[in-house]
């Protein structure tokens, strides 16, 4: 019995000793200034932008308490393309939406710079303090749509619409987008309209949600025919007069990412899984001397036509362009 008391005492003392004490953690190493360059070169436009930022620290562990944007103005950004050096202009202030910062986003931009597919571009940003950030990218080549794709709706198997394509470079990511183009007479005026078609509609807990295709390395995309069907039905949901609708065609666009964007997109848009916990998320960057990303993508598309009989089933007209 004595021993039990002793044991109890010992436990109690130990418990008292450690109860409630919580040690501070030095979660942060000494702050070091880093710089960030971001630029996504687009092969489908001649307007290119870049951003330059710096890192920051906040008291505590929640970085969202920072309300100051960390964009840096006054950098000299040069692009090397073919035999020419292009300069990006300084700080176009652009604020399309209200961000969480007190001040707006600041972009560097160049107008009239539209690099060719497959071309090589280098970038260097010279920051006002002399810091240099540099990188390079090679635009993807245009994809070639395969002949064994479904370019006519309804498709032969009446279940799925499959479009395949071929590429020159392996390991790139593609982001498809399918748009339905149609004209609708609204108040006597014909209005050109578009609607994005999901790959399928998911039925989750009684709620039907559209599911749009994600970027992937697959060189093909499958749309469920029922999704196209549903979109065609839904456009006239609020207009009894089906004759007001003239369906033109579907347009499938594929954005092809270069290697850098593929890596970046994979790391920022893919989760490992819901349960794994990792403390050293890979921060994909290809900027020498700093963080951020310099990458590129191009887009090309293909038209998918409708069979007239199929369109007439809905009471719509089949239009041409």
């Amino acid at each position: 019995m004595k021993n039990i008391i002793r044991l109890f005492m010992l436990s109690l003392i130990t418990v008292m000793f450690f109860m409630g004490c919580e040690d501070p953690v030095k979660t942060k190493a000494d702050f070091q200034q880093n710089y960030v360059l971001n630029s996504v070169i687009r092969g489908d436009t001649s307007f290119q932008v870049a951003t330059v930022l710096k890192n920051y620290d906040v008291p505590g562990l929640d970085p969202n308490v920072n309300t100051q944007s960390q964009f840096i103005e006054g950098s000299i950004i040069r692009l090397w393309y073919k035999d020419t050096v292009y300069f990006m202009r300084d700080s176009l202030v652009f604020d399309p939406v209200v961000h969480r910062y007190d001040d707006p986003y600041k972009f560097y931009y160049i107008d009239g710079f539209r690099p060719d597919a497959g071309s090589y571009i280098e970038i260097e940003a010279l920051l006002p303090n002399g810091k240099r950030l540099s990188s390079s990218t090679r635009l993807p080549e245009r994809i070639n749509f395969s002949e064994d794709s479904d370019y006519l709706i309804p498709p032969e198997n009446r279940k799925t619409v499959t479009i395949r394509w071929k590429t020159e470079r392996n390991g790139l990511m593609f982001l498809p987008r399918l748009t339905l183009r149609y004209n609708q007479i609204v108040g006597g005026v014909e209005v050109a309209k578009t609607v994005i078609v999901p790959a399928q509609f998911l039925n989750r807990n009684g709620v039907t949600d559209p599911y749009y295709p994600q970027a992937s390395k697959e060189t093909g995309i499958v749309y469920e025919f029922s999704a196209i069907d549903k979109v065609l039905q839904d456009i006239s949901a609020e207009d009894e007069n089906k004759g007001n609708f003239e369906i033109i065609h579907l347009y499938l666009e594929i954005a092809t990412f270069d290697e850098n964007l593929t890596s970046y997109y994979s790391s920022t848009n893919n989760i490992v899984n819901e349960y794994s916990i990792r403390l050293d998320e890979l921060d994909v960057t290809n900027i020498d001397g700093g963080l951020g990303i310099f990458c590129s993508y191009i887009k090309n598309g293909v038209v998918i036509y409708f069979d007239e009989l199929y369109i007439k089933k809905y009471g719509y007209k089949l239009g041409t362009n």
């Binding site: 200034q33 880093n34 436009t45 890192n55 970027a215 403390l279 951020g292």
Partner: peptide, 20 residues
């Protein structure tokens, strides 16, 4: 692994957005 600092990382929400 400690934190050195934070930066505002760029996320691409919509590749198909033609603007900024």
């Amino acid at each position: 692994t400690q934190i050195l600092g934070y930066y505002d990382k760029m996320y691409l929400t919509n590749i198909y957005n033609q603007g900024l």
